[in-house]
Structure formats: C-alpha cells, structure tokens
Amino acid sequence: MPGPTDNKNRIRSITVLGLMSALSLGIYAFESLLPPLFFIPGIKPGLSNIITLYCMKRFGRREAGMVLLVRIIISGILFGNPVSVIYSLTGGFTALLTEILADALLHGKYLHITGAFGGLFHNAGQLICAFFIMGSAAVFSYTPYLVLAGIITGMFTGLASSFLLKTKIPDKP
C-alpha cells in the first residue's frame, strides 16, 4: 500500500490501521484472560505480535510502529497501570526494531525466524527493564527461561503471521 498521498488514500489508511489496532487490542485482551502458562512473569504467547508483523509486512514499518503504540497506550488505560505500559513499550519496540532488522537481513523471507528474533529481544528488553524497575540483578536468573520462551513463542507468532499474509484479503471493497 503506498503512502497516504491523496485524501482518499489517507482516509483508507487511517481506517485500516485503526482496524488493525482494534484487532491487536482484542487479541491482547483475550490473551490477558488466559491463565498464566508458567510461574515466571513475562512468559506468555505474545499473540498480538502476529498483527505487528502483519502490519510491518503489508503496510510498512512506520505503520506497524503506530499500530503498536496505539495498542500499548489503550491497553494500558483499559487493563494496565503505568508500570505495565513501560514494560510493554520497552518489549514491543525492542521487538519491532529487531524484526525490522531481521526482515531486512532475511530479504523479507522466513518470517518465523524474524518472529523468533523479535520474541527473543522482546523478552531481553523487558528483562533489562525489570532490572531497572525491580532494582535487583537477581531478575537475570530468569534469562534462560525468558530467552527460550521468546524464541518459541516468537517462532509461533511469526508462522501465524506468514499464514495470515498468504491469505487473500481484498484491499478494496
């Protein structure tokens, strides 16, 4: 999809990105209803990354960043607190930057590898964030669990996103 050059494209891009933000928020809300998978904070499927990856591939990097930011702010207002917003921002944008870089290195192919790197760096970013918020280096003893979980869940969301991208979704009504 080209950049918003004229008014019609602008309206469409606002609508579509708004829809994507709503989808991402819905997935995030659903995920927060699931019981914790594991006793370590931060291990969760990260399903809204499917939408982030999809937006990055289909609409562009800037657009993916906007959808991510909207999702984090609104989910923070609805279900979270200022601290959870800091964790989400650090994790989300570390993951997106990693995914942009990995996608360039992989020439836009192998989205599951991109997703795995995104998941890995999402958790690594949140771990460093936790170090500053908790004020204790003891959080780093969670590193192997979080890194492994990030790779597995990231690969899953990457695969899910590549299946979504193969699905024909009409651009025009």
């Binding site: 370590i40 601290v83 936790a130 918020i133 908790m134 003891a138 959080v139 003893s141």
Partner: peptide
C-alpha cells in the same frame, strides 16, 4: 531462579 512479584517489586 528466585520468586518475583513484579507489581509489588
């Protein structure tokens, strides 16, 4: 691995 409670730091 320690016990952590992120909300209560």
């Amino acid at each position: 691995i320690p016990i952590a409670c992120l909300p209560n730091r």
